[in-house]
Design a protein around this nucleic acid. Structure first.
Ligand SMILES: [Mn+2]
Ligand SMILES: [Mn+2]
Ligand SMILES: [Mn+2]
Ligand SMILES: [Mn+2]
Lengths: 230, 230
DNA sequence: GAATTTTGTTAGGCTAATCTAACTTTATAT
DNA sequence: ATATAAAGTTAGATTAGCCTAACAAAATTC
């Protein structure tokens, strides 16, 4: 059985080497920074995870997940996102509150519990932040995700997920009236300061890159494909 | 903030000094036995809890809870019993499965979460084992509880709670067809081997003291009083 | 009231997860 | 191709929670 801490290392590795576009391995320093610990600590832990066959790693080399490590990391994320969905849908928490609570709940291990929870929620596909929920095999839909900042003027986009789950960011979106599944048209793109003006639900808003860089979108014409290369 | 372990010590102390009839303090050995650790370990931990003003204790003396310690211990039990109720009512777990899972869930700290859960469940009074759920002030109904083994032949009793939450015991009750809130009449009490025969719901069962000692009852004539001295 | 048993404490050690400080290896830039 | 910078490792310390073994105090028994 994995400890709390070991699970958090695996989860971090999934985030950094699978969800991060085009990266399949990370260094000790990057992982340490991500987890908020010192490189020395990661150095030790990674040796331990290697002994358990959860990561690939050689002295002074890069770290990547093994099949088993990837699966276990995905399970942590599955639990996290299912609990977030439960908290929002059944206990009426707002989307900026659920992440914190799920950080603890994700470490409750029972397989049966999490599958019952999944059924109770009617097998949700996405969590409150628009992130896909891995299935019980650890498989997940990882779409090519572009941000609103990459969008073109005049085109229409659907907001499918947020890249930042922090309470501050999510509350700001609430204030702007922006929510997952909203469709917005870019009516202006200022190249000087990267300000983007969008129109949606009859409203008009000016957004800075601090927002547009953290909103994942799909262009309206690719909606069915759940993938957008155009 | 209390650790997992500290919370388990406080919970154990509530069980031993508040729920156990007529006991207000315990020794190091008893607590160690209850928690499944060595006395030396308890000796250390109790000094730590005293420094945090959660227990009253002097070297070579008995251990009891302070006001604060009692409250925090009660909160652990409140969370435990609310989660048990959730698991049974919403996720369809059976009463012999919920205790194990609640052992982990009880350590999730958010006050808001537990109060939302309470509301979601419609403020239940009792958990799946018939145990009263402490309210948010840490208050609890502690009825005078007698077991079926103390009952008299010919009288009618309602089964209100079980004293043992183990899966084995609860499954045996399922097999006998005995459930919380059943009403049964004692039709025979054998003084030689303490076997008790009851009739309930048209069935008749012979019970050993291993069962009758672990079923809390109230006599049918005192049902409204929720307390039974007769 | 002394001997024995029970109960509780202390000293010293272990493991997991963290740190700091000193060091080594690898990468980058002249 | 060196020098410098960046990345990674190691040694030694700390804290929480546990252990065993030796000891001390308190309670019981004779
Ligand atoms: Mn989250
Ligand atoms: Mn999420
Ligand atoms: Mn229980
Ligand atoms: Mn219970």
């Amino acid at each position: 059985m994995l400890s709390f801490t070991e699970e958090n290392y695996l989860k971090a590795l999934v985030q950094l080497t699978i969800f991060e576009e085009g990266v399949t391995e990370v260094g000790v320093n990057r992982l340490a920074e991500y987890l908020g610990v010192k490189p020395a600590t990661v150095s030790d832990m990674v040796r331990k995870l290697k002994k358990k066959a959860l990561v690939n790693y050689e002295r002074y080399g890069k770290i990547s997940l093994t099949e088993e490590g990837r699966f276990l990391g995905m399970m942590v994320i599955r639990r996290h996102r299912l609990w977030e969905t439960f908290l929002q849908q059944k206990l009426d928490f707002s989307w900026d509150e659920v992440h914190e609570l799920a950080e603890d709940l994700e470490h409750i291990h029972s397989k049966k519990l999490i599958n019952r929870l999944d059924a109770f929620l009617d097998h949700p596909e996405f969590d409150p932040h628009g992130d896909a929920i891995p299935n019980r095999e650890g498989e997940i839909l990882i779409p090519f995700r572009r941000t609103l900042n990459d969008g073109e003027s005049g085109k229409r986009y659907k907001i499918i997920a947020v890249k930042d789950n922090s309470s501050e960011f999510l509350k700001y979106l609430d204030k702007l009236g922006i929510a997952i599944n909203d469709e917005a048209t870019i009516i202006n793109k200022e190249s000087f300061d990267e300000l983007i003006t969008i129109r949606f639900n009859g409203k008009e808003r000016v957004l800075s890159p601090k927002v547009t860089d953290y909103l994942f979108v799909i262009c309206a014409s690719c909606l069915k494909a759940k993938k957008c290369d155009c």
